[in-house]
């Protein structure tokens, strides 16, 4: 029997805000749950995030934003991923995202949005269940 392949996750912070507590805590929790995690750091453009996802050949992209620019930035990331043929990549997000924005983002291809107070176990469970099989 071979070991199941580790799920590879890119945790990324688009936008200009520096609030990285959530991104760092989630990155650490995913790693502790046995995933391979790459954290981009703050102030990433959509193009940088798409490029990192491509280069690192990740299964999952986790976006964290608290600046309020999610409506502008998230669709640019999901579109970019599609253009690069990364349709398979599971995109999830967290941060301060108002309820009424969620349908727009989901339509753009963000599969789950985890608001403040979400246990990391919920995020881990969702990713384990929904990450693409390879």
């Amino acid at each position: 029997m071979t070991e199941p392949k580790k799920i590879k996750v890119l945790v990324a912070k688009p936008g200009l805000d520096g609030h990285d507590r959530g991104a760092k805590v989630v990155a650490r929790a995913l790693r502790d749950a046995g995933m391979e995690v790459i954290y981009t750091g703050i102030r990433q453009t959509p193009e940088m995030i798409v490029e990192a996802a491509l280069q690192e050949d990740v299964d999952v992209v986790g976006l964290s934003i608290l600046s309020g620019a999610h409506l502008e930035l998230f669709p640019r990331i999901t579109n970019g991923l599609q253009k690069k043929g990364l349709d398979n990549v599971l995109v999830v997000a967290g941060g301060i995202i108002p309820e009424e924005d969620k349908p727009v983002l989901q339509k753009a291809g963000v599969k789950a949005i985890f608001g403040p107070g979400t246990p990391t176990t919920d995020i881990i469970g969702f990713i384990q269940k929904n990450a693409p099989n390879r």
Binding site: L16, S67, G68, A69, L73
Partner: peptide, 11 residues
């Protein structure tokens, strides 16, 4: 600036 896109006046 291109990086300001989507961030103008937000916070």
């Amino acid at each position: 600036h291109p990086l300001a896109h989507g961030e103008i006046g937000k916070v």
